[in-house]
Write a protein that binds this DNA or RNA. Structure first.
Lengths: 163, 163
DNA sequence: ATCATTGCAAAAGCTTTGCATAAGA
DNA sequence: TCTTATGCAAAGCTTTTGCAATGAT
């Protein structure tokens, strides 16, 4: 059976964004849509400068001010989130439609593994019982050395690592 | 039995710092010592501006530049660590001589509970086995609403909260 | 026709840095 | 004496903001 995908089919993230804009009485603009579409073209983490340059490389000259004004909207409607503040600026990731996950990062090459950890629910329940908090969320980031960056058994040189 | 504490007894953190300075061939200065002593006068989290003002309030005019130059040294020798980047600047905490712990924060009033969680060791072991990483550390921050900020059963007004 | 949004440039805030002076070793 | 560290002010970066022009409703 051939799937009949209409050309007008909209990226789900864009639909969510448009609905959010509407519900807040804000205005739908080309710039905002362009930013959303660019962010969701892939699943890589991103930062403001990178996003700005990606848009520019496609001839889409959207000011950084507009990007800085749009990102908080995307955070508010649950499409993206701040991952961390590193190298002097914020890094973001797409979260819409994805299960909650944590990051395992290689300190050497920066490789990132995303994982889901059921034990965190247990930890949250324990904390709620022990301290009476109503837990809303958690951020867990684990650091380590990935297999590729570890010294191989044959050549135990702890200095060399994959970059 | 009366403990005989000599007046020359040194704050352990200061001793660690002096040894670190010596081992690196750096110079021991009054400013650095003053900064270390002020940081370890209590266990509260702190930021640069706050530390600067605390020193100033005691008539100790140490430039922010010196503070900014000293904090990385304290991080390097394991006396303090960056907790998070919030409100546009870094926040630090003292970690020397304390067991590793995580933070449970109230989103309303900012109250912080520090807790130790043995399950994180399990999580780390699982990650190491699953992905082949050599784990070095983790950062877990849990957010929620503390008991004082939760609406009381008698007056179920979800807007009111303790500040 | 309104009024929110954009782009630009300026401003704001935190952090870093160049340089002359002060002070450890 | 020889350097390193300090303080000040300037610079560097990211992010925010004021304002005139543009564009959505």
């Amino acid at each position: 059976m051939v799937l009949n995908i209409r050309k007008t089919e909209m990226l789900p993230e864009l639909a969510v964004f448009k609905e959010f804009i509407r519900s807040r009485g804000l205005r739908q603009t080309q710039e905002r849509d362009t930013i959303v579409l660019e962010i969701f073209r892939n699943r890589e983490h991103f930062d403001v400068d990178e996003l700005f340059l990606r848009l520019l490389a496609q001839g889409k000259k959207i000011s950084k001010a507009s990007i800085y004004r749009t990102l908080p909207l995307l955070v508010d409607c649950g499409l993206i989130r701040e991952v961390n503040y590193e190298d002097g600026h914020w890094h973001y990731e797409q979260i819409y439609g994805r299960p909650h996950h944590c990051h395992l990062r290689c300190s050497h090459c920066g490789a990132i593994v995303e994982f889901e950890e059921p034990l965190l629910a247990v930890i949250e329940k324990n904390l709620a019982q022990t301290y009476g908090y109503q837990i809303t969320k958690h951020i867990l980031e684990v650091h380590g050395c990935c297999p590729r960056c570890q010294p191989s058994p044959a050549a135990p040189n702890h200095e060399e690592h994959h970059v």
